[in-house]
């Protein structure tokens, strides 16, 4: 029986590839959007502007303090009541962007806050604009602190894409669910799903370990 199911599974491998492609697509777009938004929020969070700091702080606390599944449900099922109807795919991307950027915001703010005040003062005194100070002096130094946990966060975000299966996006986890109904070998099906996730996240885990070691040396 098992051999039979295995051959069925092999037959439907294009279905899994499609799921893998969708997962990769969501992950790729999300990592980029989360990074961009996360850096902007992180810079705002570490700024001297108290209002900005507070507003971003509330955003981050709210996102970190609620389950991702609930956030997706809010976006997919509750926003339409307020007139914002989103398809599953854009809803998934929006949810990922909101959740991921909040975590990256904290990582970036932590990195920026680790830079001594004197670096800001030297850059300010020389006439650099605020953007130049960040771009040329502060962020390049903060990257040493930011990079290892950032890549670690990427791994978490890739795995979190599985949660968007709850609103019907046909990504890897969803593919697993749909398959297991027809091929009732849960261990086999979800092992395959797990291996496919691992194939995307493992390179990043290696990168994270490498960065961790390299930064520790410096």
């Amino acid at each position: 029986m098992m051999a039979f199911y295995f051959s069925r599974l092999v037959e439907i491998y294009p279905f899994f590839l499609k799921g893998l492609l969708m997962t990769s697509k969501i992950a790729f777009i999300s990592l980029i959007s989360c990074t961009l938004i996360g850096f902007v929020l992180g810079i705002a969070r570490s700024s001297n502007n108290l209002i900005l700091k507070r507003v971003v702080g509330v955003y981050v606390a709210f996102v970190r303090g609620t389950p991702f599944v609930v956030q997706i449900f809010i976006i997919f099922f509750i926003l339409p009541e307020w007139g914002l109807q989103l398809e599953a795919f854009p809803a998934a991307l929006l949810a990922m962007a909101i959740m991921g950027s909040a975590f990256i915001c904290e990582i970036v703010a932590g990195g920026i806050n680790s830079i001594p005040k004197g670096q800001w003062e030297a850059a300010t005194s020389s006439g650099l604009t605020l953007i130049q100070q960040l771009r040329l002096v502060i962020v390049p130094q903060a990257m040493k602190v930011i990079l290892p946990p950032l890549v670690g966060q990427y791994v978490l975000l890739i795995k979190d894409t599985s949660v968007v299966s709850v609103i019907g996006v046909m990504e890897l986890t969803r593919v697993g669910w749909v398959t297991v109904v027809r091929i009732p070998e849960g261990l086999m099906v979800f092992s395959l799903v797990g291996v496919l996730y691992f194939s995307i996240s493992y390179p990043l885990i290696l990168l994270s370990n490498y960065l961790e070691r390299r930064m520790a040396v410096q």
Binding site: G118, E121, A123, S126
Partner: peptide, 9 residues
């Protein structure tokens, strides 16, 4: 401006 602690980059 020159600082006590240099503050070179």
């Amino acid at each position: 401006f020159v600082f006590q602690q240099f503050h070179l980059y």
